[in-house]
Design a protein around this nucleic acid. Structure first.
Lengths: 340, 340
DNA sequence: ATGAAAGCGCTAACAG
DNA sequence: CTGTTAGCGCTTTCAT
């Protein structure tokens, strides 16, 4: 193995000088710098991560904790993971992957043994069991998502409340007076996921403001569950003219059921998705939607963490503004009752 | 920070003794062992990963490289990542996540700087550019997937050739004489992915053996592409009575199109999926399928790596046997031409 | 069964 | 601008 000492000898300088050329932490004459650079390339030198971590108490590693839970849409997670890793590399960091299995203990372990410099945590519950570990940790963290109490924490999240509101605004402007929401899977709602609760709040507030009716029903994945739920919704509220889908796994089944029932989109019923943009865009009929900016959330989380590690930027919450992609699945509310 | 020296002092022993109690590499009297264990808990001692790596030249970290490329089904990747991480933890390892962006250089970097003890690489192409780096690395690796030349490499993969063969066997036994395959997305085929090529070989060989006709068409994701492809297939081979789907993103669109065209499954046309089991199971009509055992591949890859790091088990290829899940989407070939 | 001591490869503080 | 000198916290011989 080629060590820094080898490089130093090769260049006829002291080890410290090589170290400083590498880190750029002090000025070096162009001559020696070039001799050192040359030696590094010629010998194929790579700094030893462990030695560096020991001496500097920095690992240049970020820990990314992403539980794979039921009801979570895998493509969004992958997008976050990719964005985090890419952005981290751009800042000189590697990424340690933690899944949910270990829970809060994983954070204590990684923090205690100095395996990483900071944490990024996804799928945060309103009262997430990992929060105490994160607060107690010696290292900073950024949550992707938002718990009920964000004091002392850094968060990056889509403004789901605003998303819900914009969705209803959009539909109300088209004359819809009775809106039904196929919500996140029951498992997700039961878990106390902030995004579900906040979206609903936004929907309700806006509906009230417009004087529109709003029916919310958590909906499981799969064709059968969606079909049953849709039947029930139209029984409970026959005047429904707009549906909001808050669940990637319900999009395609929903379209199938509507087709079967002979309800035309958007003539008989308007559809608005609040979910992963790709699911809305690639459906058999593209849906107007507000997407989850997974990539931007991952990127921003890393950038904030890097800033915090650099001593800039205090903790705090960053909310991303929702954006509506109109794909034509919403239209004016039908004046008569929809075709049966 | 609590160090090993603190624990030693607390227990009134030498540092080396504490180290040996931790690793169990030599026998210790029950008395001192207990005193030390007690001290560890009381002080909340955690070994410093960097220091350990430096002294032992082992990191207890596995590097997992998974590119997120177009046409790859995210849920399968997530399943692999979760299985790898869970299994790794069960063996005392953590996981460093590498995406594809950096390519072969990432392997050189991680290997050279001793960031990990071994590599797991997914989505391996027949002539993957990362292979030279892996072979040159000082650390062992296991591929999930199989390149054209496996000499000197360790691989874990589904036996896709057998999968193709079993699929055709299944259909031929039901009397189908003309089979069409909606293949992996063009991007995946063009990349030279082993699974695509090997599945096709298995399909063709078995078709020839049964004297059945086989039409293979790479198929892009999305409703429109699938609809167009299906029309074309039935024009080219009007006698087609069975369809094989080798593409998760084509499953649901395919079902929609068949419904629209009034082709009943399995009365008019039999459907057999060779793709992620979940996509086949949760479709609006569940499909008989051979699934990709993502979880087992991840688990086996880690287990093999751990064995190799322990000096047991030489490199080599492990092929997992395909398993057919019959969900009723295949049936006897219709005697007349299918309904139009 | 235990202790002592020599590094592992690097950083950083201090001289010069 | 550069060399020297301590460690960072742990593992691992070699003695005892």
């Amino acid at each position: 193995m080629v060590t820094l000492a080898d490089v130093a000898r090769h260049a006829g300088v002291a080890a410290g000088t090589v170290s400083h050329v590498l880190s750029g932490k002090r000025s070096t004459s162009a001559a020696t710098r070039e001799r050192i650079q040359h030696g590094i390339e010629q010998l194929g030198y790579r700094p030893h991560a462990g030695a560096r971590a020991l001496a500097s108490s920095r690992t240049d590693v970020l820990a990314l904790m992403m539980p794979l839970r039921t009801g979570i849409h895998a493509p969004v997670l992958m997008e976050i993971a990719t964005a985090v890793t890419t952005t981290a590399r751009a800042h000189g960091y590697d990424v340690l992957l933690l899944t949910g299995e270990e829970g809060p203990e994983a954070i204590r372990r990684v923090d205690g043994s100095a395996l990483a410099d900071a944490f990024i945590v996804t799928d945060v519950g309103l009262d997430d069991p990992r929060l105490p570990s994160l607060k107690a940790a010696e290292r900073p963290s950024v949550l992707i998502g938002r718990p009920a109490d964000t004091s002392g924490l850094s968060c990056v999240d889509l403004d789901f409340e605003a998303a819900g509101a914009r969705c209803v605004d959009h539909l109300a402007a088209l004359g819809h007076r009775q809106i039904a929401v196929l919500g996140e899977p029951p498992a997700v709602c039961a878990r106390g996921t902030g995004s579900a609760e906040r979206t609903l709040r936004g929907l309700r507030t806006a509906a009230a403001a417009h004087g529109a009716g709003l029916l919310h029903r958590p909906t499981a994945a799969g064709h059968a569950a969606v079909a049953a739920m849709l039947t029930r919704v139209f029984e409970e509220r026959p005047a429904t003219t707009a549906l909001v889908v808050r669940n990637e796994a319900a999009v395609e089944p929903l379209l199938t059921v509507l087709r079967r029932d002979g309800r035309a989109v958007p003539e008989d019923v308007s559809l608005f998705a609040v979910c992963a943009g790709q699911s809305a865009a690639q459906a058999s009929a593209p849906l107007t939607s507000i997407g989850v900016p997974a990539q931007e959330m991952g990127r921003r989380a890393v950038e904030r963490l890097v800033a915090q590690l650099g001593g800039q930027e205090p903790p705090g919450t960053v909310l991303l503004a929702p954006e509506v992609d109109d794909r034509g699945s919403t239209g004016p509310a039908p004046t008569a009752a929809p075709a049966r």
